[in-house]
């Protein structure tokens, strides 16, 4: 499953980062930070054919031996990054898309919160739990409760 999910603002600064492994959070920060280079390249419409840029899902940005890093950018230039474990070979492209879709819905809801000021860090608990859900963390808790 996803080990890290990040929301990056228009200005390429982090607005929200959630890692399963908080102890190694910084490692993921680096991964996500460097992936912005590729996101920017992909969003740079100038040297691309129209077909592959129109989708909000940007596909896999790069991979390391342990992780695969996927990107997604909204029409408003908000970027979502999901880091998946490479070993998780069963995860198909469509499932990743689905994760991003959920994330985007959660984000759009978070932005609609009148207490949220666009451009600030996202601190909404609802968004947090939505992200946890995407990462499969919330499900586990529920199971434990049952």
């Amino acid at each position: 499953m996803a080990v890290c999910i990040a929301v990056i603002g228009k200005d390429n600064s982090p607005k929200y980062i959630k890692c399963t492994d908080e102890a190694n959070a910084l490692q993921f920060h680096y991964k996500i930070h460097t992936s912005i280079d590729i996101v920017e390249e992909k969003l740079n419409i100038g040297n691309k054919t129209a077909a592959d840029v129109r989708e909000l899902f940007l596909g896999m940005l790069y991979s390391t031996e342990e992780y695969k890093i996927f990107g997604y950018a909204t029409n408003t230039k908000i970027k979502f990054i999901i880091v998946l474990q490479s070993s998780n070979a069963t995860l198909r492209d469509n499932e990743v898309r689905m994760m991003f879709r959920k994330l985007h819905i959660a984000y759009a809801n978070a932005v609609s919160d009148p207490f949220y000021i666009p451009g600030d860090q996202i601190q909404s608990k609802i968004f947090n739990s939505a992200v946890m859900d995407i990462m499969g963390l919330l499900v586990d808790e529920k199971k434990i409760l049952k």
Partner: peptide, 17 residues
């Protein structure tokens, strides 16, 4: 407008220009 556009463009493919 700033908030609602996030929602309205959610299912919309990326704009060309």
């Amino acid at each position: 407008g700033y908030r609602i556009i996030e929602r309205l463009t959610r299912e919309w493919p990326r704009f060309k220009d």
